[in-house]
Protein backbone atom coordinates (compact mmCIF):
# COMPACT_ATOMS: atom_id res chain seq x y z
CA UNK A 1 0.00 0.00 0.00
CA UNK A 2 1.03 3.61 -0.60
CA UNK A 3 2.71 5.08 2.50
CA UNK A 4 0.65 7.93 4.02
CA UNK A 5 3.35 10.55 3.43
CA UNK A 6 3.21 9.92 -0.33
CA UNK A 7 -0.55 10.33 -0.28
CA UNK A 8 -0.08 13.70 1.42
CA UNK A 9 1.60 14.93 -1.77
CA UNK A 10 -1.46 14.05 -3.91
CA UNK A 11 -3.68 16.89 -2.73
CA UNK A 12 -4.32 19.17 0.19
CA UNK A 13 -7.39 17.09 1.01
CA UNK A 14 -5.33 13.89 1.21
CA UNK A 15 -3.04 15.66 3.65
CA UNK A 16 -5.90 17.03 5.75
CA UNK A 17 -7.49 13.60 5.84
CA UNK A 18 -4.66 12.16 7.88
CA UNK A 19 -3.95 12.99 11.52
CA UNK A 20 -0.19 12.68 11.19
CA UNK A 21 -0.23 14.74 8.00
CA UNK A 22 -2.18 17.48 9.76
CA UNK A 23 0.29 17.51 12.66
CA UNK A 24 3.30 17.84 10.38
CA UNK A 25 1.62 20.48 8.21
CA UNK A 26 0.63 22.41 11.35
CA UNK A 27 4.23 22.30 12.62
CA UNK A 28 5.33 23.72 9.28
CA UNK A 29 2.69 26.46 9.40
CA UNK A 30 3.72 27.33 12.98
CA UNK A 31 7.28 27.83 11.74
CA UNK A 32 5.93 30.12 9.03
CA UNK A 33 3.72 31.96 11.53
CA UNK A 34 0.45 31.02 9.88
CA UNK A 35 -1.00 28.03 11.76
CA UNK A 36 -4.22 30.03 12.13
CA UNK A 37 -4.99 29.27 8.47
CA UNK A 38 -5.30 25.58 9.27
CA UNK A 39 -7.15 26.07 12.55
CA UNK A 40 -9.63 28.37 10.82
CA UNK A 41 -10.17 25.85 8.02
CA UNK A 42 -11.04 23.13 10.54
CA UNK A 43 -13.14 25.55 12.61
CA UNK A 44 -15.27 26.24 9.51
CA UNK A 45 -15.75 22.50 8.94
CA UNK A 46 -16.62 21.95 12.60
CA UNK A 47 -19.02 24.90 12.58
CA UNK A 48 -21.20 23.26 9.92
CA UNK A 49 -21.65 20.21 12.16
CA UNK A 50 -22.29 22.16 15.38
CA UNK A 51 -25.73 21.95 16.96
CA UNK A 52 -28.00 24.95 16.56
CA UNK A 53 -27.93 25.92 20.24
CA UNK A 54 -24.14 26.34 20.20
CA UNK A 55 -23.90 27.86 16.74
CA UNK A 56 -24.46 31.54 17.64
CA UNK A 57 -21.80 31.47 20.35
CA UNK A 58 -19.36 29.58 18.16
CA UNK A 59 -19.90 31.97 15.23
CA UNK A 60 -18.91 34.86 17.52
CA UNK A 61 -15.87 32.94 18.79
CA UNK A 62 -14.63 32.25 15.24
CA UNK A 63 -15.35 35.82 14.19
CA UNK A 64 -13.49 37.34 17.16
CA UNK A 65 -10.51 35.01 16.92
CA UNK A 66 -9.84 35.08 13.18
CA UNK A 67 -11.74 37.82 11.40
CA UNK A 68 -12.38 40.94 13.45
CA UNK A 69 -8.68 41.80 13.77
CA UNK A 70 -7.78 42.89 10.25
CA UNK A 71 -4.06 42.34 10.80
CA UNK A 72 -4.38 38.58 11.43
CA UNK A 73 -3.24 36.15 8.73
CA UNK A 74 -6.75 34.75 8.16
CA UNK A 75 -8.43 38.13 8.04
CA UNK A 76 -5.87 39.43 5.54
CA UNK A 77 -6.59 36.53 3.17
CA UNK A 78 -10.37 36.89 3.17
CA UNK A 79 -12.08 39.28 0.74
CA UNK A 80 -13.73 42.39 2.16
CA UNK A 81 -17.14 41.35 0.81
CA UNK A 82 -16.84 37.95 2.51
CA UNK A 83 -15.93 39.57 5.82
CA UNK A 84 -18.85 41.92 5.58
CA UNK A 85 -21.19 38.98 4.84
CA UNK A 86 -19.87 37.17 7.96
CA UNK A 87 -20.29 40.32 10.04
CA UNK A 88 -23.97 40.43 9.07
CA UNK A 89 -24.48 36.73 9.84
CA UNK A 90 -22.72 36.71 13.19
CA UNK A 91 -25.24 39.03 14.89
CA UNK A 92 -28.20 36.81 14.01
CA UNK A 93 -29.66 34.63 16.76
CA UNK A 94 -29.64 31.61 14.43
CA UNK A 95 -26.62 31.89 12.13
CA UNK A 96 -26.61 29.88 8.90
CA UNK A 97 -24.43 26.73 9.19
CA UNK A 98 -22.90 27.67 5.80
CA UNK A 99 -21.97 31.23 6.81
CA UNK A 100 -18.20 30.53 6.80
CA UNK A 101 -18.19 28.48 3.59
CA UNK A 102 -16.97 31.24 1.26
CA UNK A 103 -14.24 32.28 3.73
CA UNK A 104 -13.16 28.64 4.08
CA UNK A 105 -12.92 28.34 0.28
CA UNK A 106 -10.77 31.47 0.09
CA UNK A 107 -8.40 30.19 2.79
CA UNK A 108 -8.29 26.76 1.16
CA UNK A 109 -7.33 28.26 -2.22
CA UNK A 110 -4.61 30.25 -0.53
CA UNK A 111 -3.22 27.10 1.14
CA UNK A 112 -3.45 25.13 -2.14
CA UNK A 113 -1.59 27.80 -4.07
CA UNK A 114 0.89 28.84 -1.44
CA UNK A 115 1.55 27.06 1.87
CA UNK A 116 0.78 23.49 0.70
CA UNK A 117 3.31 23.47 -2.21
CA UNK A 118 5.86 25.13 0.11
CA UNK A 119 5.24 22.41 2.68
CA UNK A 120 5.91 19.67 0.10
CA UNK A 121 9.25 21.30 -0.67
CA UNK A 122 10.14 21.97 2.96
CA UNK A 123 12.95 20.32 4.89
CA UNK A 124 10.37 19.24 7.44
CA UNK A 125 8.45 17.15 4.90
CA UNK A 126 11.55 15.89 3.09
CA UNK A 127 13.17 14.79 6.34
CA UNK A 128 9.97 13.05 7.34
CA UNK A 129 9.86 11.09 4.11
Amino acid sequence: PTPPYLKWAESLHSLLDDQEGIQLFRTFLCQEGCADLLDFWFACSGFRKTSQEKRAKLAKAIYRKYIVDGSGIVSRQIKAATKSFIRDCVVRPHPDPAMFEQAQTEIQSMMEENTYPLFLKSDLYLEYT
Binding site: S45, K49, K54, I62
Partner: peptide, 20 residues
Protein backbone atom coordinates in the same frame (compact mmCIF):
# COMPACT_ATOMS: atom_id res chain seq x y z
CA UNK B 1 -20.79 26.40 30.39
CA UNK B 2 -17.93 26.35 27.86
CA UNK B 3 -15.88 29.48 27.34
CA UNK B 4 -15.61 30.71 23.74
CA UNK B 5 -12.05 29.36 23.53
CA UNK B 6 -13.10 25.89 24.72
CA UNK B 7 -15.98 25.87 22.29
CA UNK B 8 -13.69 26.86 19.43
CA UNK B 9 -11.07 24.27 20.35
CA UNK B 10 -13.71 21.52 20.54
CA UNK B 11 -15.07 22.63 17.18
CA UNK B 12 -11.63 22.41 15.55
CA UNK B 13 -10.93 19.00 17.07
CA UNK B 14 -14.35 17.66 16.04
CA UNK B 15 -13.57 18.44 12.39
CA UNK B 16 -10.27 16.53 12.35
CA UNK B 17 -10.09 12.91 11.15
CA UNK B 18 -9.89 10.21 13.76
CA UNK B 19 -6.66 8.23 14.32
CA UNK B 20 -5.97 5.74 11.51
Amino acid sequence: MDSEDDLLQKCITSAMPKQR
